[in-house]
């Protein structure tokens, strides 16, 4: 399952502070979209508005529309919990639940929502999710050991398996490789390539080579100065952004002439 996201006239505020201004963007189903831009330009903030995770921060609010296959996430009566079960998220630092085993971490989304699941179904779900996250072979003999005993890269893939296990339509990744070494990063990037066959993937990254390697389309965000809102400067095919950008500031940023 995979759905497209259409964002129109989106403004994000923290209290009175306008953090991201006027974003219009369409994220295609079964594709990888990368968000790049300097720190503080609002790309993570914008990503979190796509599954209403920004609401966790007190005072954060949104104006505008985010359509998931035509359904507005922000219309009255939409439960953020429903939204988040359809749009999963992977965070910057791997964060497996420390009190749970590897197996329970994968099943967390199911079990915490107290959905009943038979043991054979659970076993199948654990295997398929861990296999999709390219982790099954490494952990199949120690599923009952704590998830926090894995290496950083393995923990991050465990978190991806955990996100896949609730079968979302979209997976958001907020700098998923920034805490990992190059080998683990490569494993995650391979995984992202496989995931786009089934899911809509959105990834925030500081690593421009990574954006070039994994994404179909790239969005460049920038900020005019401290205290100013972040803006979507340019959104196009990844090849276009890196080889033939339409905006001067995009070219400056991707070619390293920024600032």
């Amino acid at each position: 399952m995979s759905k497209r996201i259409d964002v129109s006239d989106l403004h994000v505020y923290y209290g009175d502070f306008l953090a991201v201004e006027d974003v219009n963007i369409t994220l295609d189903a079964k594709s990888v979209t990368a968000f790049i831009g300097p720190s503080g330009c609002g790309k993570s903030t914008f990503l979190r508005t796509l599954n209403r995770m920004h609401e966790v921060i007190p005072g954060a609010r949104v104006e505008g529309k985010v359509l998931l296959d035509g359904d507005n996430l922000y219309s009255d009566g939409v439960d953020p919990v429903t939204v988040r079960s359809q749009i999963g998220m992977v965070f910057q630092r791997p964060n497996p639940f420390p009190t749970m085993s590897i197996r329970d971490n994968v099943l967390a989304g199911v079990k915490l929502n107290s959905r009943r699941i038979s043991k054979s179904d659970a076993d199948a779900l654990v295997e398929s999710s861990l296999s999709s996250a390219n982790l099954w072979n490494e952990v199949k003999d120690r599923l009952d050991k704590p998830g926090s005993g894995l290496s950083g890269g393995q923990q991050q893939r465990l978190c991806i398996a955990r996100a896949i296990a609730v079968s979302p339509d979209v997976i958001l990744m907020d700098e998923p490789c920034s805490a990992l070494d190059p080998i683990s990063t490569l494993a995650i990037e391979d995984l992202i390539n496989e995931l786009k066959d089934q899911y809509t993937v959105v990834i925030v990254t500081h690593n421009m080579q990574q954006a070039a390697r994994v994404s179909d389309k790239t969005a460049f965000f920038n900020i005019a100065g401290t205290g100013k809102p972040g803006k979507l400067i340019e959104f196009a095919e990844t090849a276009t952004i890196f080889n033939n950008p339409g905006e001067k500031s995009t070219e400056d940023y991707v070619s390293g002439r920024f600032g």
Partner: peptide
């Protein structure tokens, strides 16, 4: 950990 849980729709 709270955010990870919320992101799973809990």
């Amino acid at each position: 950990l709270r955010e990870a849980s919320y992101a799973l729709g809990v």
